[in-house]
Nucleic acid binder design. Sequence first.
DNA 1: TTTTTTCTTTACGGTATTTTTACGCCAACT
DNA 2: AGTTGGCGTAAAAATACCGTAAAGAAAAAA
Lengths: 238, 238
Amino acid sequence: MKEQRSVLVIEDERAILRLLRDVLEHENLIVFEASTGRMGLVELGSRRPDLVILDLGLPDMDGKAVLRDLRTWSQIPVLVLSARGNEEEKVASLDAGADDYLVKPFGVPELLARLRALLRRSEGPIGKGPIYRLGSVCINMVTRSVTKSDAEVHLTPVEFRLLSELLRAEGRIATQRHLLREVWGPGHESSSHYLRIYMGHLRRKLEDDPARPRYLLTETGVGCRCLCERLADPDLAV
Amino acid sequence: MKEQRSVLVIEDERAILRLLRDVLEHENLIVFEASTGRMGLVELGSRRPDLVILDLGLPDMDGKAVLRDLRTWSQIPVLVLSARGNEEEKVASLDAGADDYLVKPFGVPELLARLRALLRRSEGPIGKGPIYRLGSVCINMVTRSVTKSDAEVHLTPVEFRLLSELLRAEGRIATQRHLLREVWGPGHESSSHYLRIYMGHLRRKLEDDPARPRYLLTETGVGCRCLCERLADPDLAV
DNA sequence: TTTTTTCTTTACGGTATTTTTACGCCAACT
DNA sequence: AGTTGGCGTAAAAATACCGTAAAGAAAAAA
């Protein structure tokens, strides 16, 4: 069972918005929408999509300002759409944190291919293989499925995001601040509460003995780390 | 001092190759070169660059074939260059594993901005930090892990902060005032007591003979210092 | 709508860490 | 010798942090 991925479209032109919604939903993506930069940032915080499509020409604020803002707390992939095809604008946007830049009018197949490329990248830690193992637990970042002793384990969206961040840290400690930011968005950096609750959920679902965790560890006062082994890791560059 | 990154350019046109080498080196990148697909794959395996620029029109094999081949074992970011700007070609390349696609003739600033975006993604939090050694004790500042004769040693937050400050001084004396301010914050500059207690903790955990310390020394009335060796950063696990 | 799932909030017992307190040692002076 | 000030250790006390359960609220699904 493949988990669906979501995309937030920040775009004020109705026509393009409708077009995008249609083609993206046809790609089996969940589509969230926002028509201003401010709303976009709010939606981003509450919906936590896997990807953002950002129009540079928004009514309330400059697209690059939106980018800079979100880049202060999130690493989410962003594809910028713009009517402006001049080089300075491209360079400025990419350097402000965009991952790709597409000039309108764009070809839908190309847009989708570029989105697939971005999603492929964000499936797992960069340069790492998409499959992880913690004891009897397997995590496939491509299909976003988790199994324990070959039995499917269902994770809620928050649980999966938290696990992803832990895996991304690759055995290093992920600080509480960082995890809270990446999973719950800015403004939750002090609710270390959630962290304990959801670490508890993950342990109960994934550890053999949740009370004595072997893989999902917490460093008191600092953060958490996940001792994981990567299976299908084609890239040796660690 | 920022770590230098490397890029492999797979391109058969001499003129473009020279141009790329110049601008990339000017960007402080190490440039490797290959003029055929086959050589490119070999170089890729031996040089392990951080990034690949791949021309689609190679003399010996199709660029997409190169891409598919390398994607069976490497997740390295690839930017495709091509004279062909038609959409099918873009989609095919992106779906074959390319991360970006730029049509020739391209603007150098845009190329560089796209490369920066790709490198930004792959540098990620996978930072390699300094490693220190005191006898049989190893301290990795990034993973925040401490081992003594290969056994994991657990340090509390205060213990780790204190040790970090001592290591940062690299053998020089850190005054009591300084340590107290850095570890316990301003306002505790006179509680030199804490220092003795926590130096004791560190000695008991890290020294072979805590009563006769070899590495964690105190200079009576002045401060403390740590005789440590700074090793090269944890390297690529080739 | 109702039902189900997921997220947030609240409560509380247990554990880890930090701070406080107490006491012994040594070297340098009176 | 006795005193003094800085150091080192060991514990108890206080605090901060962690893990779990469960109920209420919100969102999603039926």
